[in-house]
Structure formats: structure tokens, C-alpha cells
């Protein structure tokens, strides 16, 4: 269908700026048009980028979680049993969010992302509770660095949909 979603959104944003914003006369309405202009730019970017970014992010997070599960499986008795964590992560990693012949919509990608990020949060909670035992282990330090690096890249991906959008006064 033409116009495409991005083309329609561009048209809506232009019409909003040119015709709606000047008509907003009360302070409250003016303030809301500022917020909405920023949000419309954000939505335009999300429509364009979110699917690809989530797909990439989920793939990277799966790899990180795989290494967390490996570490948990190998952890020594002195480091306290992390076997439960290993099993939990393997269950999440084994879950299928869409079939091979199904289009991975953004909603499905979000569902997968929530499950994977939830699993990472669970792992971090376990680590946090046992950090006095784990912190001197070199392998653990490498793993935590890897997790933090992933989180930095996740944020960079999100930033592509935020930073170019929120440019004008917010309210």
C-alpha cells in the first residue's frame, strides 16, 4: 500500500506542525503539542528501526545468556551452587517465540526480548546476592564485563530511536 507507514507518518507530522500547532492557543494545549511533536518523531523512528534493532539485540543477548549459563554450570561448590540459575536460563533459551514459517512481528520480538532480559535480570540478582563469593573469580569478572558491554550496546540501539527524535522543547 502506498503511501507506506513511514510516508504517512511524515505527512502526519508535517500537518501537525503546520496546521495543528499554530491553532493551539491555551498554554496547556501549546505545551502538549510540544510533547506530541517529539513523540511523533520518536514513533516514526521506531516504525523504521525497532524490528531490526530488537532482532539484533535478541540475538546478541541469547549469546550472552548462553555464556552465563555455561559459567553457572561450571561454577564450583565454593562459589555456591548456581545450578538452578543454569537450568532456568536453559529453559528460557530453549523457548520458541515464533515458528520457522512465521513472520517475527515486532510484538513477537518484544515478547522474546522481555523473556531474555528478564532472564538476564534473574542472573544478575543471583550474582548480586553472591557477589562476595564470586567477585574474586577471574572468569566471573570477564562474564560481568561481557554483560555490561552488551547492556551498553543495547542502550546505543535504543538511542537511535530516541536521540534524533527528542530535539525540541518537551513541554
Amino acid at each position: 500500500m502506498r503511501p507506506r507507514t513511514d510516508e504517512i507518518l511524515r505527512s502526519v507530522l508535517w500537518t501537525f506542525d503546520e496546521w495543528i500547532v499554530p491553532e493551539a492557543t491555551t498554554p496547556f494545549a501549546k505545551s502538549l503539542t510540544l510533547t506530541m511533536g517529539n513523540l511523533l518523531r520518536h514513533v516514526t523512528l521506531r516504525v523504521e528501526l525497532e524490528g531490526d534493532l530488537l532482532f539484533e539485540d535478541n540475538r546478541e543477548l541469547r549469546a550472552v545468556l548462553g555464556r552465563v549459563a555455561d559459567y553457572a554450570e561450571r561454577a564450583t561448590v565454593e562459589q555456591l551452587a548456581l545450578g538452578d540459575l543454569c537450568m532456568h536460563l536453559n529453559v528460557v533459551l530453549g523457548r520458541t517465540f515464533w515458528g520457522g514459517d512465521v513472520y517475527p512481528s515486532v510484538a513477537r520480538l518484544v515478547e522474546e526480548a522481555m523473556a531474555l532480559r528478564g532472564a538476564l535480570s534473574d542472573a544478575l540478582r543471583v550474582f548480586l546476592a553472591r557477589r562476595d563469593v564470586l567477585r574474586d573469580d577471574a572468569g566471573y569478572q570477564v562474564l560481568r564485563r561481557e554483560i555490561r558491554d552488551y547492556l551498553g550496546r543495547q542502550l546505543q540501539r535504543e538511542g537511535q530511536m530516541i536521540e534524533p527524535a527528542f530535539t525540541a522543547d518537551r513541554r
Partner: peptide, 24 residues
């Protein structure tokens, strides 16, 4: 719609502060 601003941009800014804190 005003609620969508803190829950997107400002939340992102909060996470940027956290990322800077932990060095990433």
C-alpha cells in the same frame, strides 16, 4: 500523551546515567 515522554526519552536518559556509572 505527556506520559509517553518520561516513559521513553527520560527513561532512556536515566539508563544512560546508569551506563556511564558502570563504565559502558
Amino acid at each position: 500523551a505527556r506520559l509517553c515522554w518520561p516513559s521513553t526519552e527520560v527513561l532512556y536518559r536515566a539508563q544512560c546515567m546508569m551506563a556511564a556509572m558502570v563504565g559502558v
